[in-house]
Amino acid sequence: MKNKILIMLAMVLLLSVVATGCGGNEETINVYNWGDYIDPEVLDLFEEEYGVRVVYDTYATNEDLYVKMKQGGSSYDVVIPSDYMIERMIREDLLMEINMDNISMFEKIDDRFLNLDYDPDNSYSVPYMWGTVGIIYNTTMVDRPLTSWGDLWDEEFEGEIIMLNSQRDTLAVALKKLGYSMNTRDIGELEEARDELISQKPIVYAYLGDEVKDVIVGGEAAIAVVWSGDAMAMMDENPDLEYVIPSEGTNLWFDAMVIPANAQNPEAAEQFIDFMTRPEIAAMNADYIGYSSPVPEAVEMLDEEIQNSPVAYPSEEMLENTEVFKDPQDIISEYDRIWTEITSAQ
């Protein structure tokens, strides 16, 4: 009796291996994106329309993505890094040029998102989303309006502050608080920022990634440093939340779709990029994730409320005091060292 069950179990196991083993003839495309950064329905629509199966995978930070791409062993067809990481990947020949003639929807993208410093001729990347970094806080838990990065060092908020578990973003907060550029190449300034962050550690509740959304929406903590799109999604769920761009200035960022140099299926990758740029798809996606689309026609399809939101679509003057991250190039190891020292400090 017992043997029979065992044999059956073994057969089921064997069958499942065989089952996953076949079906290899279908065309596939490997997409690697940030966690919580796409409307899953969009992927289904793409699969239906093009008959290409999407293998979807996620990462938590640009650095995570970079190491995974650089150290090989994995092959992706479309990845969606941020500005400074794209700059680094182009410099290190990790990307393939995209034939923009195949991206029929390319013209739909607003000019102000094209030919930016990280990809001056716009030959490697197609903008996906953009936004800012700011402070989100719960107005029922914080009794005064927060306006600056310096507020994050206020001991009154001990145990209520959540910082991003991301190297560049968190360093940028401290650098801006000190009045330095977030692209500083001065090791002294970076070390000052490090000391500032270490001195802040005792009052920080946690350093989180995507989990921050649940924590803030649920009122588990009052204040967090977040990306604007996540702020939109959180404010949608909890009306007590407020998002501010601190007075010291902040980071303006762009995430764009690129094709890695070792992509297996570049044609399908271009189809995918074209599909994602299509206004109705971009609108659907932006509506779902809360981030800001670089496609004006897509923005027009969103709710009036979102279109007029200063969080998702800030005015030109709100963006005056912003900086875009640049690749630190030769001093990357210094950034890494300083970040390790911050995370290791007690």
């Binding site: 190491v67 946690a206 890494d336």
Partner: peptide, 21 residues
């Protein structure tokens, strides 16, 4: 631990996954 108090395991993970050293 909310990534607040790093342990040696986190440090090793960080070197392999984020820093690439």
């Amino acid at each position: 631990g909310g990534n607040k108090s790093t342990l040696i395991g986190n440090l090793i993970e960080q070197q392999f996954r984020y820093t690439g050293d």
